[in-house]
Simulated assay, not measured.
Amino acid sequence: MSDLPSHRPDRAARLTLPIFPLSTVVLFPGVDCPLHVFEPRYRQMTQAALGGDGLIGMVTVRPEHVGDMAGAPPVFPIGCLGRIVHSEELADGRINIVLHGTERFRIADEPAGPEDRLYREAVVDRLGEEQTEASEIGRLRERISGAFDRLVTAVAPERRDEIGPHLVADVDDALFVAVLVQVLNLPPVERQSLLEANGVGARLVALESILRFQLAGVGASDANGRSRVH
């Protein structure tokens, strides 16, 4: 079992790194993601990352190709760079890791590799994050928390104490998005669309739209009394 020391990865705008395509997991910047690595190709990938800079590119498989997971299914071009911050190798070779999302990237190329490399590698370009004024972030969070509270009250009032807005009251902005994504059980395509949004502010705007849609679906209204998405 090991906890890797915190370090800054190389800041080159373009880099080559292993990519980990999954159909249901979407990593977000600023969020930790535990993973259980068991396939031989991804165990090899993880060992290579642990022996290098500890970086893995998390990418989402396109939904129409989830049946091709045993091969090399097409993925969305925008993913999230993850740094291994904890690892535990089990006796049978499987590995438990925790990835910390650092930033988004766009795949530029996926060159062929040597035959003994079982996993995929890609050349990626780092993507910046658009910054939003703290006051606007605060207003968005307040509206989203209110919408989430109304949704929980409408569909699962008996669970309000368990999964109400208190879950995200004191977390940072990145975790605010990630927790609501998890609690709302958003499908991978919607999670991917949130990842592709440029910055936390844009993700909050998109998340508010998703909540309004869900409120409309259960016949509830938003803070302005609207029961339909406009």
Score class of each variant (00 low, 15 high):
Asp161Asn: 12
Val124Trp: 03
Ile163Val: 06
Thr153Met: 15
Arg141Pro: 02
Val98Glu: 10
Ala112Met: 09
Glu136Ile: 15
Gly79Met: 03
Leu167Lys: 08
Leu127Tyr: 11
Asp109Arg: 11
Arg62His: 13
Val98Asp: 09
Gly93Ile: 00
Ala122Asn: 01
Glu110Ala: 13
Gly138Tyr: 03
Val152Ser: 04
Val171Ser: 06
Leu99Phe: 10
Gly82Leu: 07
Ala147Glu: 02
Asp68Ala: 15
Asp170Cys: 09
Val75Lys: 00
Gly128Leu: 07
Gly138Pro: 01
Gly71Tyr: 09
Ile78Pro: 02
Arg126Lys: 07
Gly164Asp: 09
Arg141Met: 05
Pro73Asp: 01
Ala154Tyr: 06
Ala134Phe: 05
Phe148Leu: 15
Ala169His: 04
Asp92Ser: 10
Pro157Gln: 06
His166Tyr: 08
Arg62Ala: 10
Arg62Trp: 05
Val168His: 06
Asp173Thr: 02
Ile107Phe: 05
Leu127Ser: 09
Arg83Lys: 13
Asp173His: 11
Val124Thr: 06
Ile84Glu: 07
Arg117Gly: 04
Ala134Gly: 09
Pro111Trp: 11
Glu130Ile: 15
His65Thr: 07
Ser145Ile: 00
Val98Leu: 14
Leu118Trp: 10
Leu118Asn: 09
Pro114Asn: 12
Ala72Lys: 13
Ala70Glu: 12
Glu136Cys: 12
Arg117Ile: 11
His166Val: 13
Ser145Gly: 01
Gly82Trp: 04
Gly164Met: 08
Val124Ala: 10
Glu133Cys: 13
Val155Lys: 09
Ile95Trp: 06
Glu162Ser: 14
Glu162Ile: 10
Ser87Trp: 14
Ser145Trp: 00
Thr60Val: 11
Leu140Gln: 02
Pro74Gly: 12
Arg83Trp: 00
Leu81His: 06
Leu151Thr: 02
Glu142Phe: 08
Ile144Gln: 00
Val75Gln: 01
Leu167Cys: 05
Ile84Phe: 09
Thr60Glu: 09
Arg139Thr: 06
Pro77Arg: 07
Asp125Phe: 08
Arg120Gly: 08
Gly67Asn: 08
Ser87Gly: 05
Leu151Glu: 01
Val171Met: 12
Val155Tyr: 08
Ile163Trp: 01
Asp116Gln: 14
Pro165Val: 11
Ile144Glu: 00
Glu133Asn: 13
Leu81Phe: 05
Gly128Tyr: 03
Arg143Tyr: 05
Ala147Ser: 11
Gly82Met: 04
Asp92Ala: 06
Ala169Thr: 01
Glu110Trp: 03
Val85Ser: 07
Cys80Gln: 03
